[in-house]
Design a protein around this nucleic acid. Structure first.
Ligand SMILES: [Zn+2]
Ligand SMILES: [Zn+2]
Ligand SMILES: [Zn+2]
Ligand SMILES: [Zn+2]
Lengths: 166, 166
DNA sequence: CAGGTTATGTTATTTCATAACGCAAGAGAT
DNA sequence: ATCTCTTGCGTTATGAAATAACATAACCTG
């Protein structure tokens, strides 16, 4: 987060109550269809990601894991994150060492993020790489996955940072 | 590196002798022009990056730092890396936690990489984001920097992995 | 229920990165 | 030249992120 920024830090709300339950249920049903198991630790980590106002660090998840305040052991959370990433329910943001729940509806997408350096939000968007890798593939590369993370200011923070127009 | 891959691990050669000296000298003269100081630790880390066959981890640099085998202290190397990144002489590859010397001639570029999951090489290329962020900027985002890392197989490894055509 | 597979619990360790602080070296001003 | 401001370095210590290894438990399938 920017040094010169004083936000209440929550441009992206985080789910609660019914919305949260519904998002988790959607994930559960998608798992059933593919014969994958949304076990308690996996479900719990998914909940924590969905509840959060922004990207969560692994050790934040570890600390928040137990409803009674008991932290999880690191492998518990890292394994759950591996699973959630594999199924497309969550993404890791490399440049932040942090994790977000997937915000895109479609099952198949390549994740990309617009990260605000001021308020810390990370908005997922669907990138278009067609022109980008035509050359690479022509040169013989076989591109499998792509990490695209743009950093800058979100609309709200950009306005705040701008000098007042006279 | 891929599990099923058996390379001698050096698709990208690494500089030696005159080529190395010339690359370092080029960096030094660019520093002089901008009144920046290529101090001994900075020069040493740059050398190590240029000599390497591929992306170097920070602790590999730390271990290799002393010509006599004495390792550096971590802050020495991390500070040098910060400097080299700031001046555009090196790049950090987020998805690898590793560093490479800049391979592009132009002073101003946004770095992007094609990373081979088999042999570990990382080829830098100049990305074209014009279409990519037109929408984002239209929506009010101010994009400052972009991390683009594509992972897959380089031409050499791709050939090796392909089933023999009948 | 037997046997294979997948997931978890637990301990410990490894890997990656920075905080903090005092000292040294360089750049400008007088 | 000396003062002084700034930048960089050396050093110690610690913090943050991720994984190795191995034993146990739950699930599935025949
Ligand atoms: Zn997504
Ligand atoms: Zn913002
Ligand atoms: Zn470059
Ligand atoms: Zn390769």
């Amino acid at each position: 987060m920017g040094v010169d920024c004083h936000h209440t830090e929550s441009a992206q709300p985080g789910l609660e109550g019914a919305a949260l339950a519904s998002a988790v249920a959607a994930a559960a049903s998608k798992c059933e269809r593919t014969r994958e198991r949304l076990t308690p630790p996996r479900r719990r980590v998914l909940e924590l990601l969905l509840e959060a106002d922004g990207p969560m660090k692994a050790y934040d998840l570890i600390a928040a894991y137990g409803q009674d305040g008991e932290p999880a052991k690191p492998p518990t959370v890292y394994r759950a994150l591996d699973f959630l990433e594999r199924l497309g329910f969550a993404h890791r943001i490399e440049s932040l060492n942090a994790y977000v729940p997937c915000r895109m509806e479609g099952t198949s997408h390549r994740a990309a993020f617009l990260i605000c350096e001021c308020c810390g939000t990370a908005e997922e968007f669907e990138p278009d790489f067609s022109p980008q890798f035509a050359a690479a593939e022509a040169a013989g590369y076989a591109v499998r996955t792509v990490t695209l993370e743009a950093r800058g200011l979100c609309p709200a923070c950009k306005v705040e940072a701008e000098p007042i127009a006279t």
